[in-house]
Each structure stands twice: as C-alpha cells, then as structure tokens.
Design a protein around this nucleic acid. Structure first.
Length: 109
DNA sequence: CTTTTGACGCGTA
DNA sequence: CTACGCGCCAAAA
C-alpha cells in the first residue's frame, strides 16, 4: 500500500510548521531534517501549497539567507512583508543572518 | 512515452 | 565576489 502519494510533502509541511515565529530555516535544512527529500523538493512542495494554509511557508529561505526569487508571480514580495511583520529585516544586501535568526534544531544529522 | 522546468545546494574555475 | 555545471525529483508540457 502506497498510502498517499504526497506523504513526502506532508512530512515537509509538518517540519515547516514547527519553525518558531521570528525564525527562519533553509530549504536544505528542511530536506535534511526530513531525511527523505532534497532542497529542490522542499521548494516544489511549498509551491504546491494552497493559499491560506497554516503552514508558515514564509519562514523558509535559501542557504544565503535570502528570499528566493520566483520565476513567475510576486510571492516573494509578500514573503518579505510577512517576515518583517515578525521582526526579521533583510540587510542592504537582502540577506537575513542565519547565524542569528536561523532555526536551531537537534534533528539535523 | 520524452523533455523541460524550478521557492535549491554544492563543487569548480 | 560572479559564472557555470550537475545532481536532485516531481509536475507540467
């Protein structure tokens, strides 16, 4: 039995749901914690996320601490607004210091 | 069926 | 710092 084809996505969403307010995690970090996905999959899973979900998708950024640019749509603009609403402001280079604001967890191997 | 495309990351040059 | 290639894998074309 293969259960749900989106089990991996559910796992990804579950992990992201645990990112505390005011903290950010990277795509690669989420992938490593899940142990069954890659950074690109995490981005793809978030892209498939419906609007108005409870998943704090805006707390996921790339390894440079930057908000990943979208090909289409302006979702990254909203992401910046949501992060600033939590007190996270990118520096003049558009980066958030992961050393300070990064989500720390012991689950990464 | 095959090819392209991406909210990524890492190694090289 | 920039530029490029490649592995990754699901979804769309």
């Amino acid at each position: 039995m293969k259960s749900h084809p989106s089990q991996t996505y559910k796992e990804i969403y579950h992990i992201i749901s645990r990112i505390p307010e005011g903290r950010v995690a990277t795509y690669g970090q989420i992938a490593r914690i899940s142990g069954r996905s890659t950074a690109r999959q995490v981005g793809y899973a978030l892209n498939a996320l419906p609007d108005g979900s409870d998943i704090p998708w805006h707390r996921v950024i790339n390894r440079h601490g930057m908000i990943s640019p979208r090909k289409n749509s302006d979702g990254h603009l909203l992401q910046k607004i949501l992060l600033e609403a939590e007190g996270l402001y990118p520096d003049e280079k558009g980066r958030i210091d992961l050393n300070i604001n990064g989500w720390r967890t012991t689950e990464e191997l």
